[in-house]
Write a protein that binds this DNA or RNA. Structure first.
Lengths: 123, 123
DNA sequence: GATCTGCTTAGATGTCAGTCAAAATAAACG
DNA sequence: CGTTTATTTTGACTGACATCTAAGCAGATC
């Protein structure tokens, strides 16, 4: 596999991907940029982490809230959070002792749109 | 990582996952069932394959149509198609000499819904 | 400033995934 | 029935990834 340095899933860098993939074929470049995001969601722990963060009250969650929910070590959770952060699905902010993670709705929305299946009104 | 035998992403087996992950936290079981689908989308070639198939005229594409679009060998394409088929994102049917692949809209829709971000009307 | 707690980084290890060449299967066709 | 074409399976190789322990760093508190 080629070295794919995963860039952040920012709206600007992805504007040409805001089309359902059932509508027109993705080109190689678009696929290379999008795949890392799905790969990041392809781990059960990361999927739950994202869901826990996004659904947490206040829209954010402290790492300490997250670590307890899993059977793996704290460094492993930290690693998974780093992956989610690297592609822009979450952001983090330190406030005093704790670090808070927050989901990035625009990134989620982009991926959701990409997978969406438009209603074929006339068919 | 635990052995995760990827089962097909059938609507029935996934009915409890039809909720945006930002709404409520996924439990471990749901995450284990959903993650393989995103993992399957986490490869650029598979992402393009799915898009090529879904956007192809008639809603289906012959393997020969697909193989030419990539720089990898035919067995590699076959392998990726098998992954997409195993989780139920596509189906295949042989007609004469050729095998045709077709996208499974229900599976795509499920994943799209999961990633969707509901409008917070009141906030 | 010593120490405690929260979190991340570094390094090591075992497993998994993507790729290819070669062989196998399957249908069509002479 | 032998050959050709289309696709898959097998087996091997290589690189990537999830996980852990141990160590590092950053605030807070005494």
């Amino acid at each position: 596999m080629s070295k794919q340095s995963i860039g952040p899933l920012t709206p600007v860098a992805m504007d040409d991907c805001r089309v359902p993939l059932v509508n027109e074929p993705l080109n190689a470049d678009q696929a290379e940029r999008l795949a890392p995001s799905f790969k990041a969601l392809g781990d059960p722990i990361r999927l739950r982490l994202l869901s826990l963060i996004a659904s947490h009250e206040g829209g954010e969650a402290c790492v300490c809230d997250l670590t307890d929910a899993f059977d793996v070590s704290a460094p492993t959770i930290s690693h998974h959070l780093k992956v989610l952060r690297a592609i822009g699905l979450v952001t983090s902010e330190r406030r005093g002792t704790w670090i808070y993670y927050r989901a990035e709705p625009a990134a989620l929305d982009l991926l959701s749109t990409l997978l969406s299946v438009p209603q074929e009104v006339g068919v």
